[in-house]
Nucleic acid binder design. Structure first.
Lengths: 328, 328
DNA sequence: CTCTTTATGCTCATATTGAGTATAAGCCAA
DNA sequence: TTGGCTTATACTCAATATGAGCATAAAGAG
């Protein structure tokens, strides 16, 4: 296959000279190389987190880096906004992949995939949106369906480790299963380990992407290539981020009740939150202010409407949001 | 200049077909493209955080992606270990840059830079190591030199905003200065905002990389290209990470006293820590265990030696380390 | 009018954290 | 040898944060 560079620059051990990379003259050291931009575009609809897909839910929206894009971030932003018609509040880079199993079809050169997490607000009547938990049902620990799925996984993982020849590996891998899936209540469930859990299932051959026949696989829809893995990366990032940065508001409508906000946080993290404590924490951080409006259709007493504080956003841009996420 | 791809694949709005990217046949849609790997390799020596450099401290170690590398991570790891001779405990991706101002010298194609943070232990007698704070003296808020530097920056930033024509911009930018540099004690200093502070100084034209003459620049050594910016990214990542993951131990020797551990944390974050509370927190998390050894040369009462808990490392891999970092 | 539902205000025990006091155990110089 | 200096280590205490629950308010349904 085509070498990325004919000769390694051979940076000697601690040599003070700059590597050839930084010479002003630069001959034809380039190679066939494809840069793909992949977006995990997330929105929340009816308290359900969703992801934008193409190809009947089998692929994340993705396309090549174009020469008109001023930067990677600008490329993803422009391109995603063109697709959704909505301004994107938040775009951040997730990860860059370049493994050998992602070769160009010619067999020449490499495919580099740069993935991004993007958040948007509403998307009424648009197609292509799928629920997060269609792909990762076991991550929805808030629901019975999620708990059922976890029970299945527990059984399958148990069989996987039992079939191992090496006793030491058996102990080590079972330890890993227990930690990641909170088996037996020895460890608490950690909602941020979406990627690690998916990778364990992949290694155990329990997902279709690992070449496992559908009837042996864990519940959850598969995707082409490693797109489900990239979705897992995005979910993990968002779950981590909502704990210490006010990014949830990028997903909320202009006005919302505190219970709506709580439901969004719960569905994103898949974890229950104590209502009164949640209110206390949100209020004391002064991230929201009353709009004066009232939401009537609550099914009970009407609720006050709030909006995200714009002024505070400026100053508190880097101040953490503390969200009380605990286990039921 | 050379187009990344002759024709955009034109993914229609929510079209169910996969983008052309994923077709099995893939003609010559590649282009001249250069992938550069850049490492922010950090170690701590005599309680001073250091970074590995080449070209007399003007460049971070960097080299092209080679076809022999199985993956990006493997490439960085193999290549860095070849240079330092030490095994790298921790390698993580930082960020991928691909801006138009980083073109190949031919003017054809784009330069993609993928940066990594790497940690290593000791490096006795090796050249190329430079102190973090040679490049970012204002980040060393623990020392008088750092505070002096901050005072200079405060004056320069004040002049920068005062010279602005637009009153609204003046207010907004001054608000930004106050937030990022904790001017006037309105906001607490946030040690994780290394990158944001550097970017503000860059925008204000106060660093040499922004084309500012050396005599007008803020103290601190400049680097070629955007390498100082990448270093800032790495410092910020490490400062954030040591708060909730036990990565410090990758930088510590096999055995250490609790004060040594504290000093490393302090010098990494540039922030003072209350000694007794630090001990309490480290001990109660059971991340370390006594080796039985004693360190005599403390200048006072001898101190017990500890090591990082290996067994716990496995189970607690994802459990956070809580480090009490506060302001003096 | 009562029951159900959600909203919102308030209490209380416990855990965590910031800060300080007290004592121990080494070295060194007078 | 002793007093003074240094660092190590053990506790204490107050302020705050957090987890959990009780109580009341205000709507609609029957």
């Amino acid at each position: 296959m085509g070498a990325v560079r004919p000769v390694s620059p051979g940076i000697g051990k601690f040599t003070p000279q700059p590597s050839g990379l930084h010479d002003t003259s630069f001959p034809d050291m380039t190679t066939q190389m494809m840069i793909e931009l992949i977006a995990v575009l997330t929105a929340v609809r009816d308290d359900v987190p969703q992801v934008m897909t193409i190809d009947h839910g089998r692929l994340l929206p993705s396309g090549p880096l174009e020469s008109t894009h001023r930067s990677l971030q600008a490329g993803v932003r422009a391109w995603v906004e063109r697709q959704t018609g909505h301004p994107i509040g938040h775009v951040e880079q997730l990860y860059t992949f370049a493994d050998h199993d992602r070769l160009l079809a010619t067999g020449q050169g490499r495919l580099i995939a740069i993935s991004y997490l993007a958040l948007t607000r509403s998307h009424a009547g648009e197609t292509g949106w799928r629920d997060w938990y269609d792909y990762f049902p076991w991550e929805n620990t808030k629901t019975d369906a999620g708990r059922d799925c976890l029970a299945i996984i527990e059984r399958l993982l148990c069989r996987w480790v039992a079939d191992m020849d090496n006793a030491a590996a058996r102990v080590r891998q079972w330890q890993r299963c227990v930690t990641l899936f909170a088996i037996g209540d020895m460890v608490a469930w950690n909602d941020e380990l979406v990627l690690q859990r998916y990778e364990l299932l992949y290694e155990a051959g329990l997902v279709a992407e690992a070449g496992c026949p559908p009837e042996d696989a864990v519940p959850g829809q598969a995707m082409h290539h490693d797109h489900r893995r990239i979705l897992a990366t995005g979910m993990a990032r968002l779950r981590a981020k909502i704990r210490y940065r006010p990014v949830v508001f990028e997903l909320m409508p202009e006005e919302f009740t505190l219970l709506q906000l709580q439901r969004v946080m719960e569905s994103l993290s898949g974890v229950q939150i104590h209502k009164q404590n949640f209110r206390r924490l949100i209020m004391q951080q002064q991230l929201v202010e009353e709009t004066g409006g009232i939401e009537e259709n609550t099914g009970g007493r009407p609720a006050r409407l709030y909006r995200f504080c714009g002024e505070v956003r400026q100053a508190r841009q880097f101040v953490g949001t503390k969200i009380p996420l605990f286990q039921p």
